[in-house]
Each structure stands twice: as C-alpha cells, then as structure tokens.
Design a protein around this nucleic acid. Sequence first.
DNA 1: GACATGTGTAAATTATTGCTGACACATGTC
DNA 2: GACATGTGTCAGCAATAATTTACACATGTC
Lengths: 98, 98
Amino acid sequence: MSSDLVGVLAALANPQRLRLIATLASGSNYVSQLARELQLSRPLVHMHLRRLEEVGLVVGRMELSADGKAMRFFDVAPFAYQLTPEAIQDAVRTMEEK
Amino acid sequence: MSSDLVGVLAALANPQRLRLIATLASGSNYVSQLARELQLSRPLVHMHLRRLEEVGLVVGRMELSADGKAMRFFDVAPFAYQLTPEAIQDAVRTMEEK
DNA sequence: GACATGTGTAAATTATTGCTGACACATGTC
DNA sequence: GACATGTGTCAGCAATAATTTACACATGTC
C-alpha cells in the first residue's frame, strides 16, 4: 500500500484535473456530462479521470441509466495530504528504501 | 499575492525536486554540494532549485566562503499546504475568477 | 600558468504530457 | 434505418519538461 506522493502530486499538477476534482466535490457525475460542463473533449476527460483514479483520488463505477445506457460515474475520494517539508522528507525516505 | 496551487503542485510533482526539498529540510546547502549528494548534474540542480524558488518553496542567498568564493545557498521555506477536495474546490474558485 | 573550487547560461536532445480526431461498440426513440 | 445518447480506445501532433554537454566568468593554491 504505497502512498506514492510523487504520483499524487503529478496527478494534481494540472488545471483541468483540479477542475475535475472541484466539480466532483459538489457531487458525482459522469464522463460526457463533465466534458460538457468543463468544455473539454470527452476523450480528454476520460484520460484525466483515469489518471486521477490510478492514484486513488477519484473512484469510478458503472451505472445503468433509466433508459438502459451504461454510464460511468465518478466520485472524489476523501483524501487529505499534508504538504510540509517534513512530510516530503518522510515520503522521500520511504521512497529511497527499495 | 497569489497562492497559485497549480504552480506549487507542478513544482513538487518531480522526484528530484522532492529529494532536493528533503535534503534542504535537514539544513541549508549550496548548489554544487547538492549536485554531488544527489548525484545530479549541477545545471540540473540549478534549474530545479530555480523552479522551486519561483513558487516560493525554497529561498536562495549568495554567500562568500572563507576562501572568497561566491556560493549560492538554499533553504526550504516553511510551507504547509493542506490538500483536500475542499481546498482544491476553493483554489479552483479563486482561479476561475479573472 | 595550470588546476582546483565555485557561479551562471545557452543550445541541443530526449522523454513525457496534453489534446484532437477518428474509430468501434452499445442502447433507445422517430 | 437514421439519429440521438452513452461507453471505450488508438494514432498522431503539438507543447512542455527533464537532462546533458559545453561554454563563460570568477577566486585561491601549487
């Protein structure tokens, strides 16, 4: 169970992905709808969400809509990272021990 | 006075820069020495430190050594960022209002 | 003067990322 | 069947980031 700080930081170091998290923080949503709301192409949203999911910042699930369409909903994970020099020092320490 | 979360995150989203911060957290140090300790080329360390300084995560100062050489020392700034969905939501809000 | 140390920068290369435009596959309605 | 919605993926291009090598300039010592 690696917390992989670098990975999380890399996932967050992008304006679009921050906007995605900000939007999802107000409630779960699905890919096409997010693309419309944030004015991004759907493949792009798909890719950003995958990147966020890989490091556990959001979680996705499949859901069937009333009219039978398979829709992919996402929620933010309740993460909380404290970013201080000391926290980074610890992260680097565990990072360097193979 | 912009806190520019994306900029800070981008600056931190790199293993070498995290190692630099971790090293500086144990005490101030200068460029050539850091390059030796972290096994990186000096221009690379120079560039990473500049990137960190731009967003205020480290601060640099010139200092004259005993034998008269101009040396560039760096210290970590005492930063503390709380990374939660809500904090990101706030950051994006202030980010979107031009 | 040659050699060690330190500083800075610029050019060129490589690797990575962000993004678009296709394509394929479903479902339900006119 | 044509059209709307939704899903996924892949190829390619453009922009950015990471890295090296080489140069310039200082200082002090052998």
